[in-house]
Every structure is written in structure tokens, then in C-alpha cells.
Design a protein around this nucleic acid. Sequence first.
RNA 1: GCUUAUGUGGCGCAGCAGGUAGCGCACAGCCUUGGUAAGGCUGAGGUCAUGGGUUCGAAUCCCAUCAUAAGCUCCA
Length: 580
Amino acid sequence: MEENEKQKMYRHSMSHVLAKAIKSLYPGVKVAIGPAIENGFYYDFDNLTISPEDFAKIEDKMREIINKNEDFKRIVVSKQEAQKLFADEPYKLELIRDLPANETITVYYTGEDFYDLCRGPHVENTKFLRGFSFKINRVSGAYWRGSEKNKMLTRIYVYGFLNKDDLKECLRLEEEAKERDHRKIGKDLGIFMMHDLIGKGLPIWLPNGFLLRRALSDYIMDKELSLGYQHVMTPSLGSINLYKTSGHWEHYQEDMFPAMERENETYVLRPMNCPHHMMIYKSFMHSYKDLPIRIAEIANDFRFEGSGNLCGIERTRAFTQNDAHIFCRPDQIKDEIQGVINLILDVYKDFGFKNYAFRLSLRDKKNTEKYFGNDELWEKSEAALREILKSSGANYYEAEGEAAFYGPKIDVQVKSAIGHEVTLSTVQLDYQLPERFELEYVDEHDNRVRPVVIHRAIFGSLDRFVAFLIEETKGNLPVWLNPLQVKILTVSEKNIDYARQIEAKLHLNKIRVSADISNESVGKKIRSAVLEKSPFILVLGDKEMAENSVAVRTRGSKDTVSMSYKDFEKQLLETINKKV
RNA sequence: GCUUAUGUGGCGCAGCAGGUAGCGCACAGCCUUGGUAAGGCUGAGGUCAUGGGUUCGAAUCCCAUCAUAAGCUCCA
């Protein structure tokens, strides 16, 4: 058996051991399901309340069961027999009820006193689990069968590996992830803050964070300008009728802040910018010769995310999209989407991102009333995106039920430090909004026809992008982005004037520099500057003053290099231009 | 939103068989004028998230609210 398959089977057998341990420690508990997952397994229980203090006790019980050398005995039963066996287990009964009539039902015994409805396979005896390394990770709630309409059960997550070192490595990675967490680094580096009184999910961008955002928006707007995008600025709210026209009010009201009424008019904070951009297009006559028209905006949006879903600047209620809408003819779709994908790849290369995946987000075919438009158009759009992805050679996977209500998408998915999968960039093909807003252009036969709209965001939201950037770089941002580019330290008070001269020269070159002239030891000042993650530290003492030089310490190195100020300046500007 | 935890000076934490708060960092002043990851001394700073309750007495126990975290659900 392949190692992966073996580990999966062991994990699954361990989940039965966990269930048996819980049943014996907490009588009255009802069992639900317990599969193997990445890094271990879990099991869901009803009528169970435990806290981390109980973990050791449960682990001991599990070891006790393992050490009893109990057989995993498989038996085949009829539906009636199964219902009888699990008469006292409502969740199992529900599963049995839903099994197809011709399905072979198997039950696995662990010892004599615990049995579980299960397809298997399992290890033959618990003695094989002796070398298996496991540790209870956490307890949390999870809805029965993944639906919020159902009861919330108690889920126990356990890390589990065949190999002891794999468990150690898993725990180490978890510790490391905490250090990379953008919320910690963002606080340490003065990027952003939150405050109860301001409101949850509403990030405050501090001076360092704003410098970073400005560098990012300048970067992306310059790129867009060179690709023929036109930037606009539109209000963060709009009349409710705008969203009734677009369909957002009908489809996404629950995710929007509630409407505001005054003078018989109703306004809403906008959750996205599409409707505003539709209106810009609609306000002018367009010839087929003018298309594509690419309208872009660095735009503030507001979404009422469930309180439990908020996460630092990864998911907020107020955020800034790097959004654009491309209005084009049907024959231009392919080139335009290809252009966006190229832009995404180009940007990710500039930032050195490697851990991402393209996802073709399709509609849920079993639940089509969620979506606008007819089947034919959807098939066509989905096929078009698939073809573009295939020909671009990008690695991608397909996901049903992830489309927007107006069309399929290509999303770029990344994983955060703590393991959330989120969308960073998105490209969406849309035939619906042009229809709803009655957008037109005049074709070569003087007919008025509908354009197609491509929605796209490269940074997705600046906020989420910064979160990912911080986690990928562990806060060691490249020099061109780092809020602080050069830190100057004086050795003694005699060097303050010289330090100020150097600082002024760097300021003239628009370098983000700060000087530490405090009455502290050089060692202390170095330490502070390193913790600030300054890419360059200049130590200025009597020696440098006499030679008109600087002693440069580069981030990541403990060595100091002495050079003339001019050389340093030249090298620094080159580094910034190269965006490394 | 749901389940479970957590909430102590700016930050990180200790104190919690109930007797009205401590440490480190940061901050301020002074001494030291120092050469590559923490020099020394002194000091200021907290109604222990908020509101109720139990008690002679609550940071410590109970309830509610708010916020945060993990997972679930959601994510245009």
C-alpha cells in the first residue's frame, strides 16, 4: 500500500479510537462522523462539552485502547440490522436512511463494545497504531453535514502521523505560522491597527502602512496605464436603484450594509464598483473601433462580513479594491482575458509569489436559480475561460459553485499563514450586467449591440494583498516597498550633524529614511533597527565623518561595508529601480 | 452568524483555593560619549474589556454585553 494511503487508513482508524475513548469517558455522547484529513483526523460529537484541559485525559484513554490490542472487525449488515444496531445514534440513523437501497452496509467493531458505521478500510488490530504519533489539536464547533441550518456539533481535531518527525515538523510549522501571521507583523511594524471603538473589521492604516499602500497603488496604476487602462474615481455609495438594476440588491443584500434613507431617497454603501463603472460606460456613445475600453479604479468598498469571518486585513468590512472593468466586443474576449492573466503573472513575478493556483470557478449546476442568464450562455462562457486557461499553460483546477452570479471566473487562490484559502486576483466574464444596464456600442453595420464586460482585480483588495505580502516575506518587504528604506544611527552626539546631512541628501532622493540620534549604545540602536526590518542601516561615527563615508549594514547580513556616500546612494537607487 | 476559548498599564505576559495589582519591553529624566542584536540609575503610567450579581470583601466566582482567536457556515 502506498504510504499516503496507509497514513490515511491509520488516521481513519485512529478516529474510531478517539470516538471510542470519548464514548467511554463521556456517556451520553452521540457520534457523527470522523474522517482522515490533512495532517490528521477529526471526529464530530453531539452532546459533548470539553476544553483543552481535557485533552491529556482523552489522549491517555486513546493510548489505553491502543494498548489493549483490540481487533477492528468488519461485518456486513442489512439496512434493518444497521438501524437496529444504531438505534441510539440519531446521526448514524440519518446516514443509514440516506444510503442507497442496494448499498452494502459495513460496520467496524473496535473491540467488543464500540462499533461504527464505516466503509473502511481499517488496520486489523489497534496494536498497529502503537507507533502512530498523535496530538489533540483543538476543539471547535462544526455544523452537522456542513449546513448552518443543522445543529452545531463538537469537533475534535487531532494531528496524526505515521512518522514521529512528521508530527514534530507539523507542530513546528504551526509555530512558525504564528510568527508569520500578518496580524502580528502588521502590529509590530506599525502597518495597521484596529480599535473596538472604531468598529470591527475596519482597519486603520498607520503611517508605515500607508507608505506601503501608496507604493503598491502607484505600482499597479503605472502598470495599468502602460496597458491602456483609464483610471476613474467614483463615490463609495450609490442609490439603491443602482444596485436593483445590477441585481446586487436582489442577490447580495445580506452581504451589504443596510440601506440609508433620507429625504425619501435610499442609499447603500457599495460592496463593489461594477455598477458605477457600467454607468460611466453607458454615459457615452461607443464605436466598435473604440473597444476595448478599460476602466480602472483604486476603490473603497464595504461588505458586511459575518463577525466570525473577519480576519485582520485579510477579510474586513471596509477595504480597497484594485478593480477594473474591460468593455469589449465578443471577438476581443480571448485577447483581453489573456492580457489580464499575463498581467497577473507579471505582477506575481515582480513580487516573487510562487505559492498560488489558478481556479476556474464555475456555477453550481444543481442550483442554477442563483445565477442570471441562460444555460447556453453559461456553457459558452465557461468553455471560453477553460480554453484560455488551457492555452495559457497555467496550472489550474476547476471548482463548481464558485462562480459570480453574473458569470464564471478565473480566480487566483493563495493560502494564508494560518491556512485560510483566499482569492487574491480574479478575472470574471460577464454577459449579464451589460444586458441589465443595456450597454451598447455601434458595430460596423451601424447596429447597436451589447459589449461584454470583463471584471478583474489584480491585487484583489490592497488590504488582503498586503496581508499575503507580509506573510510571504515575513515582513521583510523588498526595498522599493518597505516603509523604511534606510535607518541612520549615530555613534555619539558628535556625529549628529553629519547624520542630519546624510538624512537630508537621502530625502532629496525621495528615500524613506529615519535617523536614530538617541543617547543609546550602538548595539542597542542596531538591534532596534533590525527589529524594524530596515533594509539598510548606516552607522555614522567619527571615522565616517572624517572620510565622508557611510558604514552600511544590509538586512539579513551581520557584516558592515564601508563606502562613500555617493556610492551608497547610487547602489540604493539602483536597488529600488530594480524592485528587488 | 454558530460553537468553544480568551480579554490585566502602549506592547508581551504573571497574579485567579476571593483580602483592592506585579514583571519585561517601550516611554520620561539623569549618568555614561559609546563602533555593529539589549550600558547603568531613577521615575511616570493600570477604577484588571464594560455592565450587573454573589460576598464583610471580586482582577480572581456567576450572568449579560462588547471585542479578539480557532474552527464551522458564508465570501459578488
